[in-house]
Design a protein around this nucleic acid. Structure first.
Lengths: 255, 255
DNA sequence: GTCAACGGTGCAGTAGTCGCAACAGGTCAG
DNA sequence: CTGACCTGTTGCGACTACTGCACCGTTGAC
């Protein structure tokens, strides 16, 4: 057994798949063999086996190989079972420690946001992991709302926007304007809109289609997150979000 | 060499990946071995090798395996190099033959639609494969527009909607209403809106995120596609679109 | 027409794969 | 607390599957 416990032929086949992922679409047997230091007859047989399972396919005309439909399907399944929380946790913790505040990661669930990860270095946060929060009154909620079509916002407005505080935006026209600002600036704020004296900023985490998959939030009491501090916190949040986006194979884009 | 030219251990490893794709998220060594008729030590070694390349990962607590981040990334690459045209071609041809009309598949490209596949059984069609057409005045264009946020339609309206015929919808408010109808009905029509006396219907093809990835069109002269014939043609188009959606691992949804 | 390069395949040698047995660790019923 | 049961992992040795070599047919450049 080479390389610890690795099965050599499987390791080689996996390298072929990954090499195909790194090319611009397709590559030939000889090229792949050269790149991976394999004999071309070996590469040919390994590719033929991968093709049998649909993991690669061969172009009828050029003879070149590309990733196959089975990889598209597996990629979709893999994405569904992706543990975004585990992937993001260390980044959230690191960010929380460095700014000494509370950080969270929130995803869309139905008509609300769900806290999937949480880290607190302020000693004042409250762990709402697994709990839902409103879209319209939270910073990550606004980030996710901003990525949706307007008709979704209008549909939600018909259900109504609960006024959690006197600062909560409850009029749909004002919310749509706010969401346009979020798209323009690339981040959202919520100043005392969900809980009095709790301020927050949030930035998007993107998937590989450049869709917003989560909102990364920095939250603190009102006197700790002031308007003047927002730019610095947004920068820090963007850095962490970019790392998470990259880890999941996403591309940073605009909302 | 077993099974023709297949490399047995690679074939087994590929089966493991595909089996993991078929589970709800994760599975253990013993379960996977049982399912595939392998010894559990064999399954364990193959999985360890796949894990080394990031194609699978093992949960620290339960010991179960799931598809890894490398599969998410490969899936994204595979999707980008997907040859939708080749995948769809046989379905378009079959549909064209059975209704004796012209069928096309169109995708979004910038601010227009691009014909990526074409089939004609009427003897009257014109192959526009590789050519762009307007979004607002074609049936597949409306299908794709209907899936976008309203702000995109408004952005396009600022560029202006060319009136190709006297039937072309050029007012944005009327176009938005039309797109709401498209979403409601799940299909679009264009009756003499792009070319006089040319009528068309289109239905969506979905990807695995339930996003609209293409519009499948049936097109003919005005006297061949009458309002009374639309339901039948829409049904036929939906059947073909469902096959294509399934082939690319998509899920049929609503626009 | 010739030549180089490609992808694929028959063949034979050997080293890598595999199943067996045993082990370590975890869970749960009694 | 203990024993039974199950899981995942690993050492080992047999042997067959994997691999490189040589060669072939095809294709495109010149």
């Amino acid at each position: 057994m080479l390389d610890g416990n690795a099965v050599r032929s499987v390791d080689r086949a996996a390298s072929l798949l990954i090499a195909l992922g790194e090319t611009q679409g397709e590559a030939g047997v000889t090229e792949l063999a050269r790149r991976l230091g394999l004999h071309k007859s070996t590469a040919s047989r390994l590719l033929a086996t991968l093709q049998k399972r649909g993991l690669v396919e061969q172009d009828d005309d050029s003879g070149k190989y590309r990733l196959g439909l089975a990889v598209v399907r597996l990629g979709g399944h893999a994405e569904k079972s992706l543990d975004l929380r585990s992937i993001a946790m260390s980044e959230l913790e690191s960010l929380a420690r460095s700014i000494r505040e509370t950080t969270t990661l929130e995803t869309l669930e139905g008509d609300s946001v769900l806290t999937i990860a949480y880290s607190d270095a302020s000693g004042m946060g409250r762990d709402r992991t697994g709990r839902n929060s409103p879209l319209h009154a939270t910073a990550p909620g606004k980030v996710l709302l901003a990525s949706l079509p307007e008709r979704e916002v209008i549909r939600l407005s018909k259900i109504g926007f609960t006024p959690y505080t006197s600062h909560t935006i409850v009029r749909v026209d004002l919310l749509l304007e706010e969401l346009a600002r979020v798209r323009k600036r690339g981040f959202a704020t919520a100043f005392g809109e969900h809980e009095p004296a709790v301020n927050a900023i949030a930035v998007p985490v993107f998937d590989q289609r450049a869709s917003v998959v989560a909102g990364l939030e920095i939250r603190a009491s009102g006197n700790r997150i002031t308007p003047s501090r927002v730019p610095e916190l947004v920068d820090r949040a963007r850095e962490a979000a970019a790392v998470i986006t990259d880890r999941i194979g996403g591309v940073v884009a605009s909302i």
